[in-house]
């Protein structure tokens, strides 16, 4: 299972970086979203995958028996997803406004602030 997830994470990173290198700002935002998902899955996988062992102390027992699923990475991911959601919402509004103001969705045409 770890192997599959590792491949998925790699594909997500590769896809995200590929999309970020496109000239369209829409693809840029999609690329950023993919990078975020890859990071979230990475945290999930790094927290070790344990199936069918919820971290609940059975009645009578004093403490958890290893192995159990670590709830902390999932809490982290939940936080990161919420933050990512907010930021992507902002990014989408930003590219919409940029498209309306600049009149193009081509990153190569947005050089007004770059000249050295």
């Amino acid at each position: 299972m770890e192997i599959i997830l590792a491949i998925v994470i790699g594909v997500l990173y590769a896809g995200g970086l590929y999309m970020m290198k496109r000239r369209s700002i829409v693809k840029l935002v999609i690329g950023l979203a993919l990078l975020g998902h890859a990071a979230n899955l990475l945290i999930f996988t790094m927290g070790r995958l344990v199936r069918g062992r919820p971290p609940i102390i059975p009645t009578g027992a004093g403490q958890l028996q290893a192995p159990f699923a670590d709830p902390l990475p999932q809490a982290l991911i939940l936080t990161a997803i919420v933050i990512g959601f907010g930021i992507q919402a902002f990014a989408i509004v930003l590219i919409k406004r940029a498209y309306q103001t600049v009149g193009t969705d081509d990153l190569d045409d947005m050089k007004a602030t770059d000249g050295i």
Binding site: A39, I43, L76
Partner: peptide
């Protein structure tokens, strides 16, 4: 900055893993 955040987050994940 979002890319930096994604890398930072990945770093945090790996750090927690180890």
């Amino acid at each position: 900055n979002l890319m930096a955040s994604a890398l930072f987050l990945a770093g945090v994940g790996v750090l927690y893993g180890i």
